[in-house]
Design a protein around this nucleic acid. Sequence first.
DNA 1: CGTCTATTTGAATGTACTCAAAAGCGGTGG
DNA 2: CCACCGCTTTTGAGTACATTCAAATAGACG
Lengths: 199, 199
Amino acid sequence: MPKIKNRMIRQHIESKIGKALTDEEFDYFSSLLRNKSVAPKEVLIHAGDRCSKLYFVQKGALHSFLTDDVGNAHVVQLAFEGHWISDMYSFHMDQPALFTIETLEPCELIVFEKSAIAEACDRLHKIERFFRILAQNAYAAAQYRIARSYSADTESRYLELVDKNPDIVLRVPQFLIASYLGVKPQSLSRIRKQMAERR
Amino acid sequence: MPKIKNRMIRQHIESKIGKALTDEEFDYFSSLLRNKSVAPKEVLIHAGDRCSKLYFVQKGALHSFLTDDVGNAHVVQLAFEGHWISDMYSFHMDQPALFTIETLEPCELIVFEKSAIAEACDRLHKIERFFRILAQNAYAAAQYRIARSYSADTESRYLELVDKNPDIVLRVPQFLIASYLGVKPQSLSRIRKQMAERR
DNA sequence: CGTCTATTTGAATGTACTCAAAAGCGGTGG
DNA sequence: CCACCGCTTTTGAGTACATTCAAATAGACG
């Protein structure tokens, strides 16, 4: 029953734009999107493909990563309930995707096609605003992450990550967290050991 | 004469949204912004302040940087003609600025106040769209930069930077370029030496 | 219970770092 | 015009920290 399943996204939109959608507006918007269930370890987007979708996470966890020339994977984003994930570079720039996006858990997603978003933005000013705010928030978060990567060491960033996302250590394997923080799993293991030894 | 001075921004907006603004629309928009000339080495935003402005660079060069706990500066953005610069984190999140923004050359800027942008976005759907696309592009560029920082070494990123911005070596001191690339000036100097030795 | 993967630990290595000093470069004033 | 000054860039030498390689331990799952 999509009305129930999409309640989360309606609240999400309304809270971002700071005003309510009419039922008519939301029904229209709702008709443009679809729900998708995905098993763990499924790849939604392969690096190199074109990505013309945005995914909203209703339930589950995913990560995006890139593989460098020597074959090492680097986690770029970890996404949980209420987050968005996609290859924004590919989506907005019409270029091959930089990242691969893969589920970590069974996921309930809402899929937004690029064409549907374009249409909704044309038709409803409120939806255009929503996506403006979404992009701004994402950009601000990216800036913050860049800032932290310069100004804080791995230990601080690990603690901040766990603090903001307490269940991350249960839901995401440590080697992916290490990768997200930009270090090797051995290094994160040693950092955690040091922290434990200091109590 | 503002009409002439703002022609650049009008073209910029129209090219981003893919349609023309009426004279009426642009005159209204134009009335909300102001021009500003700034001498080199002037600080526009101090880290820690609230930043409620966006700057569009008509002429000149600027950089944003943050200072870490041990006093090292890290360049986050280099902005030239046709670019935007601000502390987007502060601007969108209403938090203290992460970065300091400083001119490198004499600059001609267009200043957008947050309140003016909010008003223009309310009034004109086209302007809302413009700022959506702007934020999306900025985010995509940030993702690309993160991807490159993982997958390419400093030498490749230096070459890419110079390639995309040939006059950067003339306009920006090398130690700032090094900082932008995330290394010490000594390291960039050595990298350049190695490149020269390989011919 | 056995297999596969993740995590931990150890030892050696390497790359960028710090400290330090010299050389280069640009602008100012004598 | 040249000498000096401040700042940037280069170069050298030693260091530190994450990395690599390797192996052992621990956990998860059929």
